[in-house]
Amino acid sequence: MEQVNELKTGQVFVIGTGDAGELGLGTSMLERMRPMPVKALDDKSIANIVCGGMHTMALTKDGKLYSWGCNDEGALGRSGEEYEPGLVENLEDVKITKVACGDSITLALSDNGRLYCWGTFRCASGALGFSPTKERQTTPIIYPYLANEKFVDIAVGTDHCLALSTSGRVYVWGNGQQYQLGRRILERRQRNGLIPETLGLRKIRAIGCGSYHSFAIDHNNRLFVWGLNNYGQCGLDSNVDIITTPTVISTLEGKGAIKSVAGGEHHSLVLMESGHVYSFGRADSSQLGLPKDMVKELSGQDGHASESSFKMAVGTPTLIPDLENVDSIACGGNHGVAATKDGLAFAWGYGSQNELGNGTGCDEETPSKITGQKLEGHKVIRVAAGGHFTVLLATL
Rank of each mutant, 00 (worst) to 15 (best):
K150L: 11
Y171H: 01
I195A: 05
L76A: 12
H266W: 10
L228R: 00
K98M: 06
D62M: 05
G377C: 08
R188N: 15
P367N: 03
G174T: 14
V314G: 10
L194I: 02
E2M: 08
N229T: 01
K374G: 09
G113P: 10
H335Y: 14
G303I: 04
K374E: 15
L7S: 14
I242G: 05
P196L: 06
L298E: 11
I15T: 11
D43C: 04
N230F: 07
D62H: 10
E187V: 02
K341V: 07
Q137A: 02
Y83D: 04
G387Q: 15
F13G: 06
D43W: 04
T251F: 08
S167F: 02
G386V: 13
M272A: 08
T120M: 10
I207L: 03
L91T: 04
L393K: 14
L344A: 13
G129W: 02
W173A: 00
L109C: 11
L146I: 08
A384E: 13
W226E: 14
G80L: 00
E149T: 15
G235Y: 11
V94E: 07
I249Y: 13
E82Q: 11
V152C: 08
T371I: 03
V391Y: 07
G86V: 01
G387K: 12
G386R: 09
R34N: 08
N5K: 07
K296E: 14
L30Y: 04
N148R: 13
V277L: 08
L162W: 01
S45C: 13
Q301L: 15
D72C: 04
G333K: 00
V170M: 01
L128D: 08
I105M: 10
T158P: 00
G53M: 03
V172L: 09
W173D: 00
C209H: 00
Q287P: 08
G16R: 06
I217L: 15
A163Y: 04
P367R: 00
G332N: 01
